[in-house]
Computed example of a mutant assay.
Amino acid sequence: MENIYYYFTSVGPECRCCCTTHFKLMIPIHGMVNLITLGGRKMISDSEMCLLPFQEIYSVSSSVSNESLVIAIPEDYAAFYFKDALDRREGLSWQIDATWQSIKDLMLTETANNNKEGVSLLLNYVLQKIADQPVSTSIRFINKHYTEKIDIKSLAAMEHYTPSYYCDWFKRKMSMTPLEYIHYLRIHRAKELLRDSKLSVLTISYQLGYEYNASFTKMFKKYERLSPSEYRAASNS
Rank of each mutant, 00 (worst) to 15 (best):
R41Y: 11
E14P: 01
I152R: 04
Y125A: 04
G39T: 02
N213V: 13
L51Y: 06
E117K: 09
N34I: 04
K173T: 04
W169S: 05
L86R: 03
A72L: 07
N115Y: 05
M26R: 04
A234C: 07
I182P: 05
R189N: 15
D132V: 03
E75V: 02
G209S: 04
T111L: 03
K222P: 02
I152E: 00
L52W: 06
F220Q: 01
S59K: 15
Y161R: 13
H160R: 10
L193W: 12
S215A: 13
H160Y: 12
L121I: 08
C167N: 09
S229I: 12
P53K: 01
I71A: 01
H183N: 15
A112C: 03
L194Y: 07
L179W: 09
K129S: 07
F216K: 01
V135S: 02
I29V: 15
D87A: 11
R88L: 00
V126Y: 05
P178K: 06
M158F: 06
L179V: 10
K222A: 14
V135I: 05
S235Y: 15
A112I: 00
L108W: 10
I36L: 08
P13H: 12
L51V: 06
E14H: 10
A214M: 09
R189C: 10
S154R: 14
S229W: 10
R89K: 08
Y165K: 14
A98N: 06
S120G: 02
A234S: 12
T37C: 06
L127A: 02
K116I: 07
S62D: 03
D151Y: 13
A156Y: 09
E67A: 11
A214Q: 13
L185K: 13
W94L: 07
S197C: 11
T9C: 09
T203H: 11
L127W: 04
E14A: 12
S237R: 13
T21H: 10
I96C: 14
L108E: 01
R140H: 04
K153I: 09
E117F: 10
D97W: 12
K149D: 13
I57R: 08
E148N: 14
I182S: 06
V64E: 11
C19L: 07
Q101Y: 09
E48C: 08
V70C: 12
E2N: 10
V64T: 12
Y212W: 10
T20H: 07
I150L: 15
Y206E: 06
V126K: 02
Q133E: 08
C15P: 12
I187H: 04
F216Q: 05
D132S: 13
T109A: 08
D151R: 12
Y77S: 00
S102M: 08
E14N: 10
A72N: 07
A214T: 14
L155C: 06
E117Y: 10
L121Q: 09
I96G: 00
A131Y: 01
I150T: 03
H188T: 12
E90I: 08
M219W: 00
T217N: 12
S235F: 14
G39W: 07
I152V: 14
S200K: 11
N124K: 09
L106H: 12
F141V: 00
F216G: 03
L92Q: 09
F170C: 04
Q101N: 11
F82S: 02
F82W: 13
E224K: 09
H188N: 13
L199C: 01
S154E: 14
I130W: 01
S45C: 02
I152L: 15
G39E: 08
T21S: 11
